[in-house]
């Protein structure tokens, strides 16, 4: 090996590098620009992840906007209350009480068990890619389950659970909203972490169609609307909408929901609690809805039933399949001759 190359190359390149480095070092002092010290301390207080949740391109430009344009100091979602207080201290402002912590929530419970796969998919493993085609999952509104949200999450707060649905780690989530933007089906929402109940379904299909495609979907039975003690729930597009201001977080809607699509937040262990409560509820009630002999066979109840539990047995007599019935009482209100009642 010819070492003479090294002997020439290393010192000459090294000297050249040192020369330019020295020149730049001198220039950086000579041409230094004095920045507003406030901007620097705000920039230090900010998380420095440049997520863009504040609406500015990065933490540095948000700091600049606070100092020079008087931007609001509570826009940093990942930083939360702590950062807000630090900025307030720098700017000499009051924080004005605590702001509500927010988290992202997946508004879908259509996991692998609850929904049906209609087709095999061997294309690009991405929700955004598959959403251009028809859905492979039975529900046209539900989670596609390829985890685009997981990829985009800068905090690794989302992971895929064993049932094929992304789950959000509420501790790690900073509500930066990247997953909300990424999700092609718009089923991830930023909610206040103090909000206690929500309907985790985005399907605007009618009840009978929902129950065909997903076991956990909202069938628009309106039980939650009927049972809400403060009338905070209204139905829009076959989905319950909860008025946060009037809602008292009593949890009644969660109890009565036949498909468990109404859930309590945060989801610590929804399945265990939800199931036992629902079962206890059923047992204590002990009643069954039946169609009496007054039935005239009009079929109004069959159309109204969101779970297809009602079928014709004779010409002018219908019967309710008790295994399917969720006791939503829709048939009772629909029956023109009051032939349906609890027994």
């Amino acid at each position: 090996m010819d070492w003479s190359n090294f002997i020439k190359a290393i010192p000459s390149m090294g000297a050249l590098g040192a020369l330019f480095a020295g020149g730049l070092a001198y220039a950086s002092v000579k041409f230094s620009v004095k920045e507003d010290p406030k901007k620097e301390s705000i920039n230090e207080a900010l998380p420095g992840i440049d997520c863009g949740a504040c609406g500015y391109p990065g933490c540095a430009s948000y700091a600049d906007a606070i100092v020079n344009e008087g931007a609001e100091i509570d826009l940093c979602q990942p930083g939360g209350q702590e950062v807000k207080e630090e900025i307030a201290e720098v700017m000499g402002l009051e924080t004005g009480g605590s702001s509500v912590e927010k988290v992202a929530q997946l508004m879908c419970q259509g996991d692998r068990e609850a929904t049906v796969y209609q087709a095999d998919y061997h294309g690009i493993a991405s929700c955004n890619a598959i959403n251009m085609e028809e859905s492979i999952k039975s529900c046209p509104y539900g989670c596609l389950g390829f985890g685009d949200c997981i990829e985009v999450c800068p905090f690794d707060a989302i992971y895929m659970n064993d049932k094929g649905l992304p789950e959000i780690d509420l501790e790690a989530c900073t509500a930066c909203g990247k997953c909300v933007e990424e999700c092609p089906r718009d089923i991830i929402e930023i909610v206040a972490s103090t909000q206690e109940v929500t309907a985790k379904c985005k399907s605007i299909l009618e009840g009978s169609k929902v129950s065909k495609v997903c076991e956990n979907g909202c069938i628009a039975c309106t039980l939650c609307e009927q049972n809400c003690p403060v009338d905070a729930i209204t139905m829009e597009n076959n989905l319950p909408v909860i008025n946060d201001e009037t809602c008292i977080d009593c949890g009644k809607c969660v109890e009565v929901c036949p498909t468990d699509s109404m859930v309590e937040l945060p989801l610590e262990s929804p399945e265990e609690e939800g199931d036992t409560e629902a079962e206890a509820e059923e047992e204590s009630q002990g009643d069954e809805i039946v169609i009496t002999e007054d039935c005239v066979g009009c079929g109004a109840c069959e159309t109204a039933c969101p779970v297809d539990a009602i079928a014709k047995i004779e010409d002018d007599q219908y019967e309710i399949d008790q295994d399917k019935c969720v006791q939503c009482e829709k048939c009772i209100s629909q029956c023109p001759v009051d032939a349906i009642e609890y027994q």
Binding site: G23, A27, F31
Partner: peptide, 8 residues
């Protein structure tokens, strides 16, 4: 160097 000068 140009960046420093322009900034200043």
């Amino acid at each position: 160097l140009t960046e420093m000068i322009v900034r200043k």
